[in-house]
Structures are given as structure tokens and as C-alpha cells.
Simulated assay, not measured.
Amino acid sequence: MKVVLAEDQGMLRGAMAALLGMEDDIEVAGQAADGLQAWELIQAMNPDLCVLDIEMPLMTGLDVAEKLKESKHPCKVVILTTFSRSGYFQRAMKAGARGFLLKDLPVSELAAALRSVHAGGRAVSPELALSFWEAENPLNEREREILKLAGEGLSAGDIAGRLFLSAGTVRNYLSEAIQKLDARNRIDACAIAEKNGWLD
């Protein structure tokens, strides 16, 4: 299988490429130092699979995955992460990623996961899967609805009008959501909820 590897830390990228290249059935066809380069390589090389670091300059691994889904590109996506944030996982799955793995996985396990994804399966590091089950959305449906509208720039009065509530009730929901998310204000609360995939 032909693989494009995207990781912004040069040493780690080089080591992973060298070790994966030792596997009989894996060819590292290209290496990228940022998301944009990864996107361009995937377009040029049509690999079977791309392994994308989640945090990269210019475009994140999730941005690349979303673009691939949008353009209906057949390349399968495996996301590598050091973060066990459930929002990242939800966004990756929504973007069609087939794998979500920890970066410090032994290369033999990474190769096995790539084979499984290539064969049409999924691969998620068990430690990540466990933490995602535990990280439930703290917001109730009404709080999500109100935060979403606040994120679109609507005032408490506008939101109240749209949802047939009083402005005071809307402010109560907002302050409840801000507290639950340990946010500084409603803008911060929107950003936190958005990042964790809790507004969908």
C-alpha cells in the first residue's frame, strides 16, 4: 500500500517513515511537514492511505481529512495524536477518518493498524477510545442551541426572540453553560464547545 506521511516534527517523521518503509507491504510515497503540503502530495500521488498528525501548521490533520471528504478523494485517513480530546475524535470520525491513533504507538502496531484500515476496517487506540467514552458532552440541548446562536453573534435579546424565551432565561442558560465549560465568557464558551464537537 502507498502511504503519505504528514508530521511537522522532522525527526519523528523521518523515523516513522524509515521504520514503516521496512515493512514489506508499505511504501512511504511522500512526506509532508505541514497540512497544506500533505494535501498537495495526496492530490499528486493518489496514495491508498495518509497518516496525518492532528496539529500541523497551515492546515491541521483534521482540516486535510475534511477537505478529502469534501472532494470525495478515495485516500483513507489515519489521524495521529498526542491529545485525547473527544471533540477531535468526533470531528475526525465525521470527516471520514478510519483511524485515530496515539503518536507514541510502536511502529509494528501502527503498521498493523494501517493494514486494517487499508482492508476496510477501523483502528482506534484503546486508551483513546476509553477516554472518549468518558468525555461526555456536559451541555444540555437548550444550552447547546443557545450557545450556537450566541456563536453566530446574536444577542441575548435576539436569541430570546428566536426561541420564544425571555432574555433573562437566555442569560441564565448562557451563564450555566459558561460555568459548566469553565469558560471566561460566552465567546470562550462557544470556542470550547466548538472545539470539543459539543455543539453538533
Rank of each mutant, 00 (worst) to 15 (best):
Q9S: 09
L12Q: 08
R13Y: 04
M16F: 09
A18N: 08
A18H: 12
M22T: 15
D24R: 10
Q31V: 10
A32T: 14
A33N: 05
L36I: 07
Q37R: 10
L41D: 04
Q43P: 08
Q43V: 06
M45Y: 11
D48K: 05
D48F: 10
L52C: 00
L52E: 00
L52Y: 00
D53Y: 03
E55V: 14
M56A: 06
P57C: 04
L58C: 02
G61S: 05
L62W: 03
L62K: 04
V64S: 02
V64F: 05
H73Y: 04
P74E: 12
C75D: 01
V78Y: 00
I79N: 01
I79F: 00
T82C: 10
S84I: 11
S84Q: 15
R85I: 13
S86F: 09
G87C: 06
Y88E: 11
F89E: 04
Q90P: 03
A92K: 00
M93N: 04
A95Q: 04
G96D: 05
G96W: 02
A97E: 06
G99Y: 03
G99S: 07
L102T: 09
V107Q: 09
V107I: 15
E109F: 08
A113S: 14
L114G: 00
L114N: 02
S116L: 12
S116M: 12
V117D: 01
V117C: 02
H118P: 04
G121F: 04
R122K: 12
A123R: 02
A123S: 11
S125R: 04
P126C: 02
P126E: 11
L130N: 10
F132E: 06
F132Q: 13
N137R: 03
N137P: 02
P138S: 11
P138W: 12
P138F: 10
N140F: 15
R142G: 09
R142M: 15
E143V: 10
K148D: 11
A150G: 06
E152M: 10
G153H: 12
L154M: 11
S155W: 07
S155M: 11
D158H: 08
G161L: 14
L163Q: 08
G168W: 03
V170I: 12
R171G: 09
R171Y: 14
N172C: 08
N172Q: 14
Y173E: 09
Y173V: 11
L174D: 05
S175R: 13
E176L: 10
Q179G: 15
Q179A: 08
K180F: 06
A183R: 07
N185V: 05
N185M: 09
I192D: 02
A193Q: 07
A193I: 06
E194L: 14
G197L: 04
W198Q: 02
W198T: 13
